[in-house]
Design a protein around this nucleic acid. Structure first.
Lengths: 100, 100
DNA sequence: TTGATAGGCAAGTGAGCACTTGCCTATAGT
DNA sequence: ACTATAGGCAAGTGCTCACTTGCCTATCAA
């Protein structure tokens, strides 16, 4: 649903999580936690990150797979396509230009 | 700023306003109000719509021009481009399987 | 001028959300 | 068995945000 997608994108911490998953796919919860702290100075509890990931998963932006006691998170940017479809972007150079 | 953009998109009423401006550009505040009520059953005060438009304008998604006592609102989808640039979509013939 | 229309400013309220804390379950290694 | 690691569930808190109400300004017509 569109509501889930835009709500997921509304939080800056969640957007950084998407950045991190775009940089390195298949991270665990603890891995994401430490990268938020190390590379972005975002001090947040493990539970906070877990809740963010749940929101992102509800939006379809993150997919998970379990292996043993590990749960890996992968980015899926496909839901972002409905944004471009809903409000089409103007052409790259000028309002009346056709793509070559 | 990215924060303004995603915050603007986070509210469902604001997204409907964007839809209406995409359908008919250059609407006034009262025109948007009545269209929200008529076509979407969104009962909201004039002031509520005005505040939404301010948020959309801060995000760069709506531009305004004054003429006499009228203020016309126009849609500008250009800020949406940074979304696609930040998290690139997988192409139809991308690194993995392609969807028919 | 008076009256009507289009819009703006500011304070107040209620609900949703991000975040934490505490406890619990499951898997892996010794 | 015990211990450490990886993750989940649930309640509580503070803050932001959407929305309303009331009053004020500006433009146009009689």
């Amino acid at each position: 649903m569109a509501e889930d997608l835009f709500k997921a994108l509304a939080d800056p911490t969640r957007r950084v999580i998407l950045d991190e998953l775009a940089d390195k796919s298949g991270q665990t919860l603890f891995e994401i936690c430490s990268r938020l702290a190390m590379r972005h100075q975002i001090a947040i509890s493990r539970q906070g990150v877990s809740q963010h990931l749940a929101v992102l998963e509800a939006a379809g932006l993150v997919e998970t797979r379990r292996e043993g006691r590990y749960k890996f998170h992968d980015l899926n940017t496909a839901p972002l396509r409905q944004i471009a479809e809903r409000w089409p972007l103007p052409g790259p150079s000028g309002p009346e230009e056709s793509t070559p």
